[in-house]
Each structure stands twice: as C-alpha cells, then as structure tokens.
Design a binder for these strands. Sequence first.
DNA 1: CAAAGCTCCTGACCGC
DNA 2: TGCGGTCAGGAGCTTT
Length: 280
Amino acid sequence: MPELPEVETICQSLQGIIGKKIVNVIKNRNDLRFILPNFKKIEGDCHVKAVSRQAKVIRIFFSNEQILLIGLGMTGRLILQKKNSEMNENSHEVKYSKHNHVIFEFDDGDRLIYNDIRRFGFMEICHRNVLNESKSLAKIGIEPLSQEFTGAWLFAKCQKSSKPIKNFLMTNEIIVGVGNIYASESLFESHILPTRIAKTLSQKECERLAVAIKNVLQCAIASGGSSLKDYANADGQTGYFQHSFKVYGRDGEKCNSCGDVLQKIKQLGRSSFFCKFCQK
DNA sequence: CAAAGCTCCTGACCGC
DNA sequence: TGCGGTCAGGAGCTTT
C-alpha cells in the first residue's frame, strides 16, 4: 500500500500509544505474507517507548529492548480504536472487519487493529541489538530524505545501472520508500522520462531528480499522504496529496505545464505516467 | 551477475 | 445479475 509519506504519516498518528502496555494480542490467523511472530515477547510489563519509520517499515520500540516491525504491503492498515469508541457503520474498519488479522489490546482499553485485505504485509519482532540484521531491514537502500542522499550520490549509483530510471527509483535495495506514485511524480518534476536508462542520466539531471524526490515526498508528508483506495492513518483520517498529483492516474488528461495529453505505459508490470513533451 | 518475470491475495470495476 | 478479464501504494523468489 503505502509509500514513504503514508508510512511516515501513520507513525505520526501512532505517537499516542507511547507509554501503553500490551496486555493481550489476538491473532485471527497465523500468517500474513510470512508467519506471525511470537507476541509474548512484547506483552506484559514492557511499554511502548517510541514509534518511528525506517524505509516503509514501522518500528514500535518496547522498554524491554524488543522492537515490533510492521510492513504494510499493498493494503495493510493500522487502526487505533479508543476505548468505548463508537464505530461508524460505513467505516473501512467495519466494512472489511473480516480482514482484521491482528489486534493489540492495551492496558488502558485502547486497541490497535492490523487490517490487511491482500495480506502482503508482515510483522517481525527483533531485539534492538540486531535490528539492522532483521529480515525486513537487512538489505535496504538509502533514505531519500537523509542528508546523505544527494544528486552526487544518485549520479554515482545511476552509473552502475542499466535499468529504466523509474524501476531504478522503485528498487528498495537502492533507495527506500519511493513507490509507484512518487516515482512518476518525481520524474515529472525533474523533467526526466521514466524510460530513460539510469546510466544515461547526467549529473545535472541527477541533481534535479534528487531535489524533486525530496520535495515530492516532503510535500506528500505535509499533506498527510495520498489516499487512494486503502490508505488512512491510524486515526482513520485520509491524506489529500492525491489532489496534487501532476501525472499519476491522469493519463488522457492535459499536462498542467504544457497542455499536452499525459501518457501511461507499463514498466515491469507497473503503470508509469508522464508528459512526453515536458520530460526528456 | 543484473534485470525481467512471476507470484502471493482480495476486491473494485468494466464490458459483454 | 453474473461472469471473466484487468488492475491496484510491495517486494521476495525464480528465471533468463
């Protein structure tokens, strides 16, 4: 489901669980994409110390040095349900409640529900000391919002790749967090065609692209992410960055910059959107 | 080896 | 109203 901005927004909306203890975990099935971990490791006396994101993985730190890692896949959602809260009958939570796979019950009566229609998500629990060796974080690339991610860094990496730049940007082992939406949007903003082979990009183009990626991601975070079908933060609020898309999902419509008709193509089975006039 | 292809899964939507 | 085909924010495994 979510790309970096959506995961970041979800983490922000989960800050309220800090200090809570998990008294019980209800598993409605034994696996998602992989077998679920043994939740006894985070139940009982320990409390939540912090919630943050690394790549597209949500990390919930506990006071006993254990960390719960949650990947949302395509359709994973976390829903924070307050004690005694009234549910809206039309809510996603009610409509798709048969996909509530894991429910964390806190000591104050609040609950955190993991819902995932397609079950491409996963959970893992690991000790703080081996976090970077965990299955989900062992082989990940650079954080695009970090200082280390620059045009120069991107140029050096691009030179070693003969993938189309769109697929290059979506490769988690190179750069994390940039999925199908933000890859198309960043390439439009930097005036680069998605089909360009990575190693043909000039240093200047890489600099424009690095700036565009940071800018698009930061704007999306500021807008609470993009809500298409399945995304909302843990409080059920949807983002509104989808209204700012310049190319994603807009094939057949007119380019805001030049008025030409926007195009859609498939790259490795995923849709790419671009303006054939504005992007070179 | 890198890159492409296939796959997991459910639901929405479109055309007939 | 139903059936079949296509498509969807990801990414690990297999094939070429």
